[in-house]
Design a protein around this nucleic acid. Structure first.
Lengths: 203, 203
DNA sequence: ACAATCGTGTAATGGATATTACACCTTCGC
DNA sequence: GCGAAGGTGTAATATCCATTACACGATTGT
């Protein structure tokens, strides 16, 4: 009896392996994680990993890009709710913060940065498939508002840069400081958004 | 005849080694750089490295913290020129950008992040000895202005966070993206400062 | 000039781990 | 049930590099 979730045994194997690999990479980093540990946790065998992913780097690739769904859709959804620009940005900030401060995400970013020392192209692809899309989507949103008659102080691309910079710098600080700095409180985040709205001429 | 710049041969040796190590770390990263390469470039021998630095990590430590002079003094100097808050911040931004976008600095930050996966404490010490000092110095500057009667929108610590966030996010983006994103033009930077001044109620 | 101190060059040592090879055994279609 | 296709577990292979050991030669103070 073939379960519909098991139609392809290889798919299940692939999943089990990437799940185990992701967990181990997040715990220990890429270099410290041995293929042996992955097999130990996921079952299966070394040979299967090589068959499915080519080599260890192929496995990292699969892990990183599997969850690299960009914030693009997120932004589009929230932007199309029809709320005022200020409210839209407030809601957006809350959602993006949640995402950017997720410890697992931060750990993966750390890994991408570390890996990028040896493989610059890897970092570029990652950046393109995540932050770049998010930035462009936000830029389009600002441009759209402007086209609808909203007066903005600053160009859409500068504003997108700054807005994301305000969100992301905490994640990046966290990536560097490894938890020295407490994550910002809700009040602190709110204060930043109001700051942004003033700067952009929206409040 | 002992040259005054050569009073201690060990000091010269130490310098030659850290110079070679820094260059190689920046070029190739920490892991890929072998002690053999360092000896090859600096002369001397493996035994000397172990005598002076204990082990490979000790050498990285020396390299990273030797140039980790914080932006603290910089901020104090510029803040005490007596210019208006707005002009002080404009000048500060120019100087900090110069510093944060230096490719060698970015490469070292990448290395610190990579290393922090295995040694969280290393990252913490780095962060404390650099960004943390800069942040506190800026915070004190804002507080001082407030004490002198300047009206600010937002608390000194929130403003310091945001100001540095605006400066630093580019460096960090660069660290991640490995040069995908063009570094901001002077105009772009200027636009950001004006944005900050509006947000802080200084313009 | 002398001897002791200390850096130098070379050559082990030792451990870790990605990658491959190979001989079983399980699974699935018929 | 049967046989082929393909996972599985184990055990090499092969390399790479930090670290240590050691014997030689240079430098310095007297």
């Amino acid at each position: 009896m073939t379960d519909e979730f098991e139609c392809d045994r290889l798919d299940r194997r692939r999943r089990a392996i990437t799940d185990a690999a992701r967990a181990l990479f997040i715990e220990q980093g890429f270099e410290r994680t041995t293929l042996g540990q992955i097999v130990e946790r996921a079952g299966g065998s070394l040979a299967t990993i090589y068959k499915l992913f080519g080599n260890k780097e192929g496995l990292l690739d699969a892990v990183v890009f599997e969850k690299a769904a960009s914030g693009e859709n997120l932004i589009r959804e929230i932007a199309q709710c029809g709320a005022s620009p200020a409210d839209t940005l407030r809601r957006l900030a809350a959602v993006l913060y949640e995402r950017f401060l997720d410890p697992d995400d931060v750990a993966l970013v750390r890994i991408v940065i570390a890996r990028s020392i040896d493989d610059a192209d890897f970092a570029r692809r990652f950046f393109e498939s995540t932050a770049m899309h998010t930035r462009r989507a936000l830029e389009r949103t600002f441009a759209q508002w402007e086209a609808q008659g909203v007066r903005l102080r600053g160009s859409p691309d500068m504003l997108a840069e700054v807005f994301l910079g305000l969100m992301v710098s905490d994640m990046q600080t966290d990536a560097i400081s490894h938890g020295v700095v407490a994550r910002p409180s809700a009040e602190r985040i709110a204060a930043r958004i109001e700051f942004f709205l003033r700067g952009a001429g929206l409040a």
